[in-house]
Simulated assay, not measured.
Amino acid sequence: MADELSKVFAALADPTRRDMVARLAVSDATVSQLAEPYDVSIQAVSKHLKVLEDAGLVSRTREAQTRPVHLEAEVFDLMTKWIERYRQRAEERYQRLDALLAEMNDGPEAERPRVENDNTTRRGKAS
């Protein structure tokens, strides 16, 4: 699983590939359609797609004369599970920190005598 995730995260490290994935999330596209917004060759887009394909993020099918690229959503489930596990752990640490800070703020206040009361008491005795 870790090796698969490494490939996925490495593939998504490139902003052009992330953009392609975002566009494929809307609908399938051909290599030519994916290349349109970029100032790069079809070969460069094909290389990006090969990285995404090797990571399992996209697949290509054949429809007549075209080869549409399809986003493989299952890979995102794998990523989401991994991220969620660590998000939960971080959330638990933050909750423990919040509880500790609340205890630190509430605890000493309850135990420490108020200065105003001490001064009033002393003044009262001195009079």
Rank of each mutant, 00 (worst) to 15 (best):
T30R: 02
K125E: 14
Y38L: 11
Y94S: 14
T66K: 12
V75A: 15
A99M: 05
E92Y: 03
D106N: 14
S6C: 12
L12E: 10
L24V: 06
E74A: 15
K81L: 11
K125R: 06
E116L: 12
E84R: 06
E63P: 00
Y38V: 02
A126H: 03
N119M: 10
A55P: 12
I42K: 13
Y94L: 14
L12G: 13
R122H: 06
A99H: 04
A126D: 12
Y38A: 09
V21W: 03
A110Y: 04
I83Y: 08
R93Q: 13
L24H: 05
A99P: 00
S32L: 10
A35V: 00
D118R: 08
A29D: 09
F76P: 13
A35M: 02
Q33R: 09
G124L: 12
R93K: 09
T80N: 14
E72H: 03
A64H: 05
T30N: 07
Q43R: 10
P37Q: 04
Q43F: 09
E36D: 15
P68E: 09
L52D: 02
R114D: 15
D3H: 13
N105H: 04
S41Q: 06
T66F: 06
M104A: 09
A11T: 05
L97W: 03
A73C: 04
T121R: 09
A25K: 06
E103R: 02
E84D: 13
E116N: 12
R87N: 06
Q88S: 12
K7D: 15
P37N: 05
G56R: 03
G56L: 10
Y38E: 15
I42Q: 15
A73S: 07
L5E: 08
R60W: 02
E91I: 02
A126P: 00
E92L: 10
P68C: 12
G56D: 14
D28T: 05
R62K: 13
N119C: 05
M104F: 09
E53R: 07
D28Y: 06
F76D: 14
A10M: 11
R67T: 11
V31D: 00
L5T: 07
R112S: 08
V58T: 13
V26D: 14
T16A: 15
T66A: 15
A10L: 14
L52K: 01
R114P: 01
V58H: 05
V40W: 01
L34C: 09
Y38P: 04
D39W: 01
L78E: 11
D28H: 07
R85Y: 08
K125M: 11
D118G: 03
A102C: 01
A10C: 05
Q88E: 12
M20E: 11
K81E: 15
P37Y: 00
K81S: 13
Q43H: 10
P37H: 02
